[in-house]
């Protein structure tokens, strides 16, 4: 099993190299001159050239690439023009915010979509099935930033149930000491229930807006998969042998139905990380989405590259995680090399 995991890991290396090359080339052929941007609006041609030389941008592209890769190997993603900080520091500081939001969104989606899909599958054609289809269609029909605005309007502005939708924590709560980077968990570790609750409160609206997006594929997948499994021959066998209904639905049905759902979880997670960009803008969330948007708007090469490389690494790690999860649930995968 460990060998298999190592193998999967190694097979990701070529795609990683590909990602590094492609992002470098694309970000350097994009229009926009960062040297001009940094030299300021009143800069002369001379001072722009000077900035260029200072940033190493006057070198030929291959030379820039070699420098870049050399730095990358040492964990140096370059320095952001915008923040003046090393890109790695920026990302590491912001990543937990995005991760926490995405995980809660995924959790919300799973908790709602999986039971809904299962319930619909066990009673096809019933009102719950129609409810499932309706919910799923409605959730997928609205873009997430729109849902986010509606939720803010209703639950913050009209009803006042939600805290003000700005950032991860209202200003009068202390930021908990960093352990995991997740405010909700760190606050609990620090024994500060009030802050944990406040952090969770801040999370509810953005997590729901984001999670609604993932609801549709998850619920549909669960429903279709469970219907397929319930129609399969081994379920008939289980019934013919007189196994109790609960056992048939859970041990025989649900566990098998879960396999394709687990398989798409990694995809949905990275899909959510991407969708984060808009939600973070709406909720003033200090995550990597906001960072990436700023980087693109200002042609902040190092930041863009750093962001994309990090997303690629995350994607690869996530899929590795999904593969491992798969090996645990599905014995057939363990032997498959």
């Amino acid at each position: 099993m460990i060998k298999l995991i190592a193998k999967r890991f190694l097979s990701a290396v070529p795609s990683l190299i590909g990602v590094i090359i492609v992002t470098f080339v694309i970000s350097h052929t994009l229009p926009g001159d960062p040297a001009a941007y940094f030299a300021g609006p009143s800069a002369t041609a001379e001072s722009i050239a000077e900035t260029k030389a200072r940033l190493g941008l006057d070198q030929p592209l291959p030379a820039q690439f070699v420098t870049y890769v050399g730095d990358l190997v040492q964990g140096d993603l370059g320095r952001s023009f915008n923040s003046g900080q090393p890109v790695l520091t920026d990302l590491v500081r912001r990543l937990p915010a995005s991760f926490e939001l995405t995980l809660y969104a995924l959790l919300f989606a799973i908790v709602v979509a999986v039971p809904l899909g299962l319930w619909a599958a066990v009673n096809p054609g019933s009102w719950i099935d129609h409810l499932c289809r309706g919910t799923v269609t409605a959730a997928a029909a609205f873009p997430s930033f729109f849902t986010a605005l509606v939720l803010i309007f209703v639950f913050y502005y009209k009803l006042g149930w939600a805290p003000s939708p700005i950032g991860r924590l209202a200003i009068y709560f202390p930021v908990p000491p960093t352990v995991t980077g997740f405010f909700t968990i760190d606050a609990l570790i620090a024994g500060d229930v009030g802050t944990a609750r406040a952090a969770l409160g801040q999370l509810v609206l953005p997590a729901i807006s984001l999670g609604l997006f993932a609801l549709a594929p998850l619920a549909r997948m669960t429903r279709a998969s469970m219907i397929g499994v319930l129609g399969s021959e081994f379920i008939t066998t289980a019934r013919a042998e007189g196994l109790p209904r609960r056992k048939i639905l859970w041990t025989y049905g649900f566990r098998n139905a879960l396999l394709p759902v687990v398989n798409i979880l990694g995809m949905i997670f990275s899909f959510l990380l991407g969708a984060n960009v808009l939600i973070e803008q709406v909720f003033g969330w200090p995550g990597i989405g906001t960072y990436a948007v700023e980087a693109v708007l200002t042609s902040d090469y190092a930041a863009i590259q750093g962001f994309v490389v990090m997303m690629a690494v995350l994607y690869i790690l996530l899929n590795l995680g999904v593969d491992i999860l798969n090996m645990i649930v599905d014995p057939r995968v363990r032997y498959d090399d």
């Binding site: 066998t237 289980a238 013919a240 042998e241 041990t251 566990r255 098998n256 599905d330």
Partner: peptide
């Protein structure tokens, strides 16, 4: 009780 033609498909694949 009943036994079936395709025994492999008639058994739970992941148990």
């Amino acid at each position: 009780t009943m036994i079936f033609q395709n025994a492999r498909a008639a058994l739970n694949p992941i148990r």
